[in-house]
Design a binder for these strands. Structure first.
Lengths: 381, 381
DNA sequence: TTGAAAGCGCTAACAG
DNA sequence: CTGTTAGCGCTTTCAA
């Protein structure tokens, strides 16, 4: 009874289809109708088997299963989405896939989502707000069940698109940032101003007094700018501490870090600050290599710290102090929050605030300065 | 005449729709029908305006344009795909987005494709063949217009899926590898055996005689294994040259590179080979740092070379010699090949072989060995 | 436990 | 230049 196993060539005219007009074009793939014809049921039953197997008679189920396997059936997601209105797709937009920081977040997202049968649609903006707007527009065309974007800075048009989607019931999550005052959308991340302050505190407490923050040359890395601003504010608030701001050149981040160091040298080639914080670890590592080349001791002559906790920070010298952002955790928590809002909540279904913890990884590059180096800060007696 | 501008709330029952049965559920988004109602035409005209604007009367066109903007219309891609049978989506499957090598390829792909209005659907396998199979299955459900995968090693089932898709007319491209004998699918990449041989040749010509190849600990990085195999073969074919194979530990690649160096030390802490080639630059850089820590001079006591041309290779010591793979170019050429096969060929529409050139970047870490170091290879006189 | 009917939003002929 | 007709492959009531 089960007919030929050639997928797209049902032997007889399908009972359920208008026998008069032949199928217009079939893309070579087996459809529910083909399976139904092979088994001798209607496509509804096959569809039901696929979604709620227990609601189909065991005997029928078995024959359907066989036909499915024989024909190598693969569901057409477009059709499914169109009919059901739910896509089982979550879209995520990140600045750059080449940045390992976001790659880890995406990894966490993918793991959390794919375990529940959701597909991940990914787009990168290259740190360009207008490109982000385009990408938001593009992915919304896919009717994702949810959308995760990076940060809280968007063009007005992008914001409008997000707001419209949110109003239509699509969960929108802003990743990698976190503000205490609730914003228009859900957030999963941490507060970058807090990190900037913590970096300043770490250096001042270790006894450093002449500080610099080297910001990234990437204009649209708003979070790095925010850390820098907070760093400077917190540093300058400490008595006896000076702090200056530099902006790294664009291009190769290692070179930019090297160059930042050379810009901080005086005419006799001596470093003018005693500690430098960087917007990211690439810059910090480049700076370390330049210091090493010039015979500037780290941290004896200058302390260095970065952000991102890249593997290389553990390899250079006595280690470069860095802040470990919860990159993977942001992805996981975003996935969890999306699933919750989609009503797919697991056990611990409580809605969190979306705040995720970061850690300051203290390494040799910011070892406490010897007291002798800051004599004037202690009372003479 | 143009009615209210509330998108999903057409004032009157749509002229073109069955007025008896109300729309079942509308996802809050404006549809072609809404626009048509607002303008007073049928949805076909609106659809036509979207695809072939010049075939619509200027007056109508302008009113449609206005309605489109007012309602913030966004096409439903699922519906479009289902109706047209073409998705304007190209899927790509890479081992890892965290690996900058593939990130660049994806970048090239995205640029080449998005300029022609194609969307990129991305999936990562984590270097797992079974995961690749799952991902292939998943993305094929989206009916992509083309599919690019990485490498030529797939599970049998994956190969069958690809073959079926290819038979159904979907262009399938294997990226990052290239075999002279045509394989089942189109290829865009380079020959890794050739690279391995070139690496061996580079070292032996520079006068190194005791070689090692440190392969990656990632079991499914077949291309690295291939380079290693060819490296050993070519090295051993040279008179007086010895070559051994090591496999790096898994985990942090810098640490693995360090560890490889320690494994190559004799009991007195002296390095037993005079040159090491690595499966990738992370390993090579880790090795350099370990050599530096131990006071082993590079290249005087040991030469090092890697693969990938990562930025860090330009920063350490006098530079680490590496092979620059055409990462971005592979993406671009894959895009071009796909567009050609999809009949969207641009000017230079000739089908190439898909072979893309790599470059050996010679740096200080493999400077030619002084003659004195290999005395026994020259005739005593 | 299964089926019939209707329709998701859009495109593709073919008329007019 | 515009409309009519007929689906794309699947899900969803509602009946049987």
């Amino acid at each position: 009874m089960p007919p030929r196993d050639m997928p797209p060539a049902p032997a007889a005219p399908p009972a359920d289809s208008p026998a008069t007009a032949p199928r217009r074009r079939t893309h070579g793939r087996s459809t529910l109708q083909h399976i139904a014809d092979a088994v001798g049921v209607t496509k509804v039953t096959v569809s039901r088997y696929l979604r709620e197997p227990h609601r189909v008679a065991p005997a029928t189920a078995e024959r359907i299963a066989r036909a499915l396997a024989e024909q190598g059936y693969m569901p057409n997601r477009q059709a499914g989405m169109l009919a059901s209105g739910r896509s089982r797709v979550v879209a995520a937009i990140v600045p750059s896939l080449a940045n390992s920081v976001f790659a880890d977040t995406v990894q966490g997202l993918a793991e959390g989502l794919q375990s529940r049968g959701y597909e991940l649609l990914l787009a990168a903006t290259g740190y360009s707000p207008t490109r982000e707007e385009q990408q938001i527009r593009a992915v919304l065309g896919w009717s994702p069940d949810a959308l995760a974007v990076t940060g809280r800075q968007h063009t007005d048009a992008a914001r409008a698109l997000l707001q419209a989607a949110a109003n239509a019931g699509t969960p929108i999550i802003e990743m990698w940032d976190w503000q205490p005052r609730a914003t228009a959308f859900a957030q999963v991340g941490f507060n970058h101003a807090e990190v900037g302050r913590a970096m300043a505190r770490h250096l001042t407490r270790a006894g450093y007094r002449a500080l610099a923050y080297v910001d990234t040359g990437v204009a649209a890395d708003f979070r790095a700018h925010e850390r820098g601003k907070a760093f400077l504010g917190a540093a300058r608030a400490v008595a006896g501490v000076q702090a200056q701001l530099l902006t790294a050149t664009a291009g190769d981040a290692f070179e930019a870090g090297r160059e930042a160091v050379t810009r901080l040298l005086d005419s006799r080639g001596r470093i003018q600050v005693d500690a430098i914080a960087f917007a990211n670890d690439h810059l910090a590592c480049g700076a370390y290599l330049e210091a090493e080349r010039r015979g500037i001791a780290v941290p004896a002559q200058v302390a260095l710290m970065g952000f991102g906790d890249f593997p290389l920070t553990r390899q250079l010298g006595a280690g470069i102090t860095s802040v470990r952002p919860p990159r993977y955790e942001i992805g996981r928590e975003t996935a969890a929050m999306i699933l919750r809002r989609l009503g797919e909540a697991g056990e611990g279904a409580e809605e969190g605030t979306g705040a995720v913890a970061w850690t300051l990884m203290e390494r040799g590059s910011t070892a406490p300065r010897r007291v002798a180096a800051v004599p004037r800060l202690r009372p003479a007696g």
